[in-house]
Design a protein around this nucleic acid. Sequence first.
DNA 1: ACCGGTCTGTACGCTTTCAGACAATATTTT
DNA 2: AAAATATTGTCTGAAAGCGTACAGACCGGT
Lengths: 241, 241
Amino acid sequence: MDAYINHKSNLILNALPTQEYERLYTHLEYVELPLGKILYDPEEPIRHAYFPLRGAVSVVTVLRDGGSVEAGVIGKEGVVGIPLVLGRETELNRRAVVQIQGSGLRLKATALTEEFRRGERLHDLLLSYLHAFITQISQTAACNRMHRLEERLARWLLACQDRLGSDEMQLTQEFIAEMLGVRRAGVSVAATQLQERGLIKHKRGFIQIIDREGLEAASCECYGVVRREYQRLFENRAATG
Amino acid sequence: MDAYINHKSNLILNALPTQEYERLYTHLEYVELPLGKILYDPEEPIRHAYFPLRGAVSVVTVLRDGGSVEAGVIGKEGVVGIPLVLGRETELNRRAVVQIQGSGLRLKATALTEEFRRGERLHDLLLSYLHAFITQISQTAACNRMHRLEERLARWLLACQDRLGSDEMQLTQEFIAEMLGVRRAGVSVAATQLQERGLIKHKRGFIQIIDREGLEAASCECYGVVRREYQRLFENRAATG
DNA sequence: ACCGGTCTGTACGCTTTCAGACAATATTTT
DNA sequence: AAAATATTGTCTGAAAGCGTACAGACCGGT
């Protein structure tokens, strides 16, 4: 029973009609998603799709020098492994890594594509989700170019909270820096500024959002734009940011 | 006859089996794509999908202050209007605008989605293309954060040439600046530097690539990564960069 | 209680890019 | 031919963020 409730906390699985859900059910495997776990790497075959139940997964673009920059975040509103439904088994430039520890349900690649090809509800849900995800990435592309670190950090923390549910997050500056594509020292300065404005509190490996509304005001427009697109996605069912 | 050959210069249309192509044929409408023409705007309904035959279309993220940054470029290897197949009629944050004048074939939204829903070749081709397009956007997101203007300009010019075929392009610095999300003056400096290195020549509203190999060396890795993904796309049929 | 590793705050000079402005040149219009 | 417009090259001061470094704070293990 508890497992059943868990399954339904992924919004895509939750939106499936009973018949489709039951077809998938036997193939779903519960997995823990510990911090830092890599779900797939560039050029490596993607063997499973992951439907997060709790926590968040980052999709990051990996550069030749080893540096990386986040392209998008996936939580309970989405699925990790979109290339599978697009007919690809690998990504050339991206890695999926657990950003906030949690859990999820995974599905073998073949099971996913088989159900997808039926062209029923899962097909349409995944494509709708993909649209929102593309919105997220393209907004991030502009954001990375135009907005200042403090704004981007605020945006990023808000997106995290939406996917996490809680206002407390276990995150190091080092990790955040890698996601935002900046120096760790830069995150330290920006986080301290947000704290001085009373919007967050942060300690070693830990950040808490104190004033969510204020943090939204301190973030760039990108947060709101992407949030709106995700709300459209499940607007008749449930909302996530 | 000439029209027929033209149709086939779009690589997606070209890859369709005869039967599917003929189903679409009557719905295809030839259109000129003059410089600056807007194919869709944020929040406005997308009424047609465009299959470019010549020229190139930019998809740019539009920011609240009116600024814009390119997310991706679409040429004869692709199609403009992907949201339609994802079940959306609008984009919240993007505009599609003709970057290099040319021509294309357009299809009413309903005709595209109808054929897409058949789940035959066009369905799979569009999804494969989408994968490459996402690779392009996410690489750009990292590129915008990590790479210097001169490298990014080189990358951008190369991607332009691939889609254009010719080594001469009619482009103003003002336009390029808007695509790259930088000041016009910055483009002037970077273009002059590339010219001093003997890689390009540029005059008022005009840029020519002189040393393509040198320009590739001067560009960031992002050009090669994205090019490779697009090559995978049509690898059994034709190649584009 | 101590130690080693991890995490954070802060500092320095430096690079890239910005913002804004201006003059020079090329093209189009009158 | 002259005027208006579009496009480009360059300048100055300033901001944001970089690379690097280092010391202090925190944490877990023995």
